[in-house]
């Protein structure tokens, strides 16, 4: 394939990856920002979203779109509710101590994975997309000095992939509105700035924490429901989103929502685009090292102010 069309294709693929990543990472960033804890089980809540989407979609009959819409509504809410319960029964009781939270969430990671394996099984199962039309994309070339439109072999995307990008954009806007314009967002930001002070001012910090944890994990689940018609639900699918969201959150600057979104775009797109130039595994090595070096020379992240420990 020629260079131009290839770059377009890689960018489109990168954009889909970036959208899903942005949603997942914003969930992690919210938890990180407000509660100052690392949720190692974040990827497992992502996986639960995908698995629940499969359960919901297969139990709803009729047109595939019905099942998908039902999954879109039900799975994130269920996962968010479960996460809130985990917060109240475990995280609250370890007093959100950073190290103990890491171990506790590793334990939760094992539990969720194993329970999924025992109930859902080891297969990768697909959810039918509500619509999925292949859209060929035209490109131009110069024939005798004049540009001429043609349809390159293989240059295409699908309507569903475009929908994923749009849906992620809408959701992220809603999250931003919630954080910046609503009362609950105000309470969250107050808690983020100073938990103790917020408590003194009568903010129900414990309830805010449970809610933040629920919303954060619910966003991961939503991202998973969006991706599951493209990739399948599998009980080990949570590891990659976890690692990538981690990176995105740090690169974006701790707890900064716009930073997180921009970092997700950078990471998602660069993964696609670097693969144009290098052999795939070498591209992965380079993009991994790139992330490391960004942090080494800008530890507060690209868009963060100084990190507060």
């Amino acid at each position: 394939m020629d260079f131009g069309p290839y770059l377009i294709l890689a960018s489109l693929e990168g954009a889909v990856a970036a959208s899903v990543l942005a949603l997942t990472a914003v969930g992690l960033s919210l938890v990180f920002g407000v509660m100052r804890v690392v949720n190692v089980a974040h990827g497992e809540f992502f996986m639960l979203g995908a698995v629940l989407a499969w359960f919901v979609a297969t139990s709803v009959g009729g047109h595939p779109a019905l099942g998908f819409v039902a999954a879109l509504l039900v799975a994130p809410v269920l996962v968010g509710g479960l996460a809130a319960v985990v917060d109240m029964t475990v995280l609250k009781r370890v007093a959100y101590d950073p190290e103990r939270t890491i171990v506790a969430t590793i334990g939760i990671l094992y539990i969720i994975q194993q329970v999924t394996l025992m109930t859902y099984g080891p297969d990768a199962r697909p959810v039918t997309p509500p619509f999925n039309t292949r859209l060929a994309i035209p490109w131009f070339e110069f024939v005798g000095g004049r540009p001429q439109v043609y349809w390159p072999w293989g240059l295409s995307t699908t309507s569903y992939k475009l929908f994923v990008i749009a849906a992620a954009a809408v959701t992220l806007t809603l999250v931003w509105l919630m954080m910046s314009r609503s009362k609950i967002g105000l309470l969250m930001r107050a808690t983020q700035l100073d938990g103790e002070m917020a408590q003194v001012f009568g903010i129900p910090v414990e309830r805010i924490y449970a809610m933040v944890f629920g919303i954060g994990c619910g966003l991961a689940a939503l991202a998973a429901v969006l991706i599951v018609p493209i990739q399948q639900a599998h009980y080990l699918m949570g590891t990659d989103p976890l690692l990538l969201s981690f990176i995105v959150v740090i690169i974006g600057g701790l707890g900064s929502l716009p930073g997180t979104v921009i970092a997700a775009l950078l990471i998602g797109m660069s993964d696609g685009i670097i693969s144009v130039f290098y052999t795939p595994t070498l591209a992965k090595i380079l993009s991994t090292l790139l992330v490391a070096f960004v942090l080494v020379f800008r530890p507060q992240g690209l868009f963060g102010t100084r990190e507060r420990d």
Partner: peptide, 19 residues
């Protein structure tokens, strides 16, 4: 990696190990 600390140190070491 020691140019960073805290969570950034975790991620940098994670990235180097992944590489």
């Amino acid at each position: 990696a020691l140019r960073t600390s805290g969570v950034a140190f975790m991620i940098v070491t994670l990235m180097f190990a992944q590489a």
